[in-house]
Nucleic acid binder design. Structure first.
Lengths: 206, 206
DNA sequence: CACCCATCCTACCGCTCGGTACAAAAGCTG
DNA sequence: CAGCTTTTGTACCGAGCGGTAGGATGGGTG
């Protein structure tokens, strides 16, 4: 749409990135359906017609806000998965995730989950978009661990696909915990436990 | 309120337990805010005034439905934690959880999470009730594992509190996955991975 | 059969929702 | 400074929300 400043007509009184970030916070805190237009415009500091002129609709605003959020998350994940070993990758992934879930500069938890796990039928697309975002992250994790398996970098008997799902599920569970008030330290202690999985040789089950 | 049949006045045309179960399904599928009264009454097979005469309000209906759901979940969890060893308890907990999350006779996932992780400010109580339910389950797990630690039934160096949080978080993550369509087998494979944590002696970290 | 009374059903309430019409305002261009 | 273009602000729209009033209904009880 707007490529830089149009240089004609009345100039915009707000920065698109800024108001997107504020919108994301409201969606994050209250979910898609729990975020009313009044709450959104209030937090964004703009009024309805500006919102609609810029973003089109509540749903499109959400898509934009979520895309922005997801890009950043993906960048963090990518950095984690660039670690040289599977163990280091998983550790970096889970540690940075736990840090992010409890960072003080935004709502606790994760927009991909808080945004709307369950929605009314007419907003079903929202849950789908969020699920697709989470699936993309899991796919990256799976690729990294599949490579690790090829390189002999995983303990014997560990299926990389299952391990990816395990790590992703744990991180999602941490998001749920964070949203309910769990602290960074509590999540990191859970990560400590999880990492035993990757570090060890196969079990002699009792 | 109604203690059995009042034996006076027009008899009720519906069974309270039955309509509660149907209401729970709607909340489960669409979340508290996504479940409209029309959807609820439609699924319950009763009309609005009957709903309000019986349950008082949408919120009270939800509380009743969730309490019913949570009791049953707690019973399953209690059975799992009655296993003789920590390993068997955790395994039973995670396996039965994964089974329940993907059972075909109700929506996928878990009402405690689908119901409303994030809500509009006026429905904040809903998220709190759900979080309290999950916390109760985690507390039961924590007690069981603390006992196990006292009994020397945990691998050395494992903090029972952190292990409880880990197990609970994983199960919540599985709920998120199940809601997005993960199969029972996929979740069980993730459980396979997780169980290595409980089975093994402490890591020599690479 | 007349009475009583809780439940059922239709139709409606006020309110907030997401979304928009329209005119005043504000910056460039000539 | 007139004209053009885009954004801003106010005030509003129909629809659906959660919730309710009041009469019709249908079972026991005398």
């Amino acid at each position: 749409m707007s490529t830089g400043t149009p240089a004609i007509g009345r100039p915009r009184a707000f920065d698109e990135e800024t108001v997107l970030a504020r919108a994301a916070e409201v969606f994050w805190r209250h979910g898609y359906e729990g975020a009313s237009l009044s709450a959104l415009t209030g937090a964004m500091g703009i009024n309805r017609p500006s919102l609609y002129a810029t973003f089109g609709s509540k749903e499109e605003l959400f898509q934009r806000a979520f895309a922005r959020y997801h890009e950043r998350q993906a960048a963090v994940a990518r950095a984690a998965l660039d670690q040289p070993t599977a163990y280091a990758s998983v550790e970096a992934f889970l540690r940075s995730s736990a840090d992010g879930l409890t960072a003080g500069d935004h709502p606790a938890g994760c927009l991909s989950i808080q945004g709307g796990l369950a929605c009314s039928p007419e907003n079903a697309r929202i849950s789908q978009v969020l699920a697709a975002g989470r699936a993309a992250t899991e796919a990256a994790l799976r690729e990294r661990l599949t490579r690790a398996a090829r390189e002999g970098d995983l303990p014997a008997g560990v299926d990389p696909q299952a391990l990816a799902r395990f790590v992703m599920a744990l991180s999602e569970g941490h998001a749920v915990h964070a949203a309910a008030g769990a602290s960074r330290e509590e999540l990191q202690a859970s990560v400590d436990i999880a990492l035993r999985v990757v570090a060890l040789t196969p079990p002699g089950r009792p």
